[in-house]
């Protein structure tokens, strides 16, 4: 299939492993799904912190279940990416550990307090879920299938995150103040979660033309603001004055992009932020430490293996 045909046919769940697709499509889809999968893993490095910090046994259980789901999503997504025949999962995981693999901006900031749990589990996850819902109609079918299962599970994550926010904002004055301080720090990062405005985005035009992406950054950010600002305000969080958020003529909301630190954003996108170094370093060390187990399993698979490969 040539690119022109791909663009013509582009639509929800239009292409799958049986189709012969141009390299440009397969590479773009791989980049997108790999980024998504990497983000599930790297989000775990933040969320894992909250399991230990959770202030109730049931919160701890919920948190560990949530982290488990995220790893489950990574498993689904790496597989969906592998079906494009560009990279294997092992290659993608290697790239993540060496700092070549890219992932969401918010996961480049290490966390150390429970107050940050709703930042990740409510706002970032809520934003991610907005995007994931639109990806149910991506043109790469295995990706759409993965999104079906991911979206099925995510509702728990977002409600769990909101429940934590609500509890903290019903806490003592000191707790509410800590929450507001945390929000002030995280809010600009969350706004940048949806990336730069459309005309600055590098890969988006093509991804949309071939149906991989079905909503623009701008649309997603707008709908996120419409839903999540009222939520933040409902619990008593004040939206920081900067970055300025304004209402458009049609009643939707938008961010004044000049108020956001795009230098930091692009540093992050190159994995060169100080937090990137810390998070990726942690990933690499942890992966290296269990390399012996994977080697041991490989030895087992190739020798004592479960069932020998049947001859063709």
């Amino acid at each position: 299939m040539d690119l022109e045909t791909v663009m013509e046919r582009a639509g929800p769940r239009e292409f799958g492993p049986g189709d012969e697709l141009p390299e440009k499509y397969r590479k773009a889809a791989t980049r997108m799904i790999q980024f998504h999968a990497n983000s599930e893993v790297m989000g775990g490095y933040l969320d894992k912190t909250f399991t230990r910090k959770a202030p109730s046994l049931d919160r701890k259980l919920a948190n560990t279940a949530k982290v488990q789901d995220e790893i489950g999503h990574a498993q689904l997504l790496y597989r969906a990416a592998e079906t494009l025949d560009v990279k294997t999962r092992a290659e993608m995981l290697d790239e993540l550990a060496t700092g070549e693999g890219k992932f969401l901006n918010c996961f480049h900031y290490p966390v150390d307090s429970w107050y940050e749990a709703p930042m990740i589990d409510f706002f970032v996850d809520g934003g991610a879920m907005r995007r994931q819902a639109t990806l149910k109609s991506t043109s790469w079918t295995p990706y759409a299938h993965a999104m079906d299962k991911v979206c099925f599970e995510e509702g728990f994550h977002v409600k769990h995150g909101e429940s934590i926010l609500r509890e903290l904002m019903n806490g003592s004055k000191a707790t509410q103040e800590r929450m507001q301080e945390t929000f002030d720090v995280w809010w600009p990062r969350i706004l940048q979660f949806f990336g730069p405005t459309n005309d600055e985005s590098v890969h988006d035009d093509f991804a949309q033309a071939v149906g991989l992406k079905t909503a623009t950054n701008d649309e997603l950010r707008t709908s996120f603001l419409n839903m999540y600002i009222p939520k933040a305000e409902k619990y008593g969080l004040e939206i920081p004055e900067y970055p300025r958020i304004y209402e458009r003529d049609d009643g939707t909301m938008a961010v004044r992009e000049d108020d956001l630190d795009w230098k930091e954003f692009w540093t992050i996108s190159r994995n060169e932020y100080e937090g990137s170094t810390e998070q990726i370093g942690s990933r690499r060390r942890r992966q290296d430490a269990v390399e012996w187990v994977r080697e041991s399993l490989e030895t087992w698979e190739s020798s004592a293996g479960p069932t020998p490969q049947t001859a063709d």
Partner: peptide, 26 residues
């Protein structure tokens, strides 16, 4: 056991050890 979450050797083994940790908390 939850210390192994995200750190387990493979994605599949990560899911399994997480489940065991949850069972034990339960």
């Amino acid at each position: 056991l939850t210390e192994w979450q995200i750190y387990a050797p493979t994605l599949e083994s990560d899911l399994a050890i997480a489940n065991i940790a949850q069972d034990e908390f339960g």
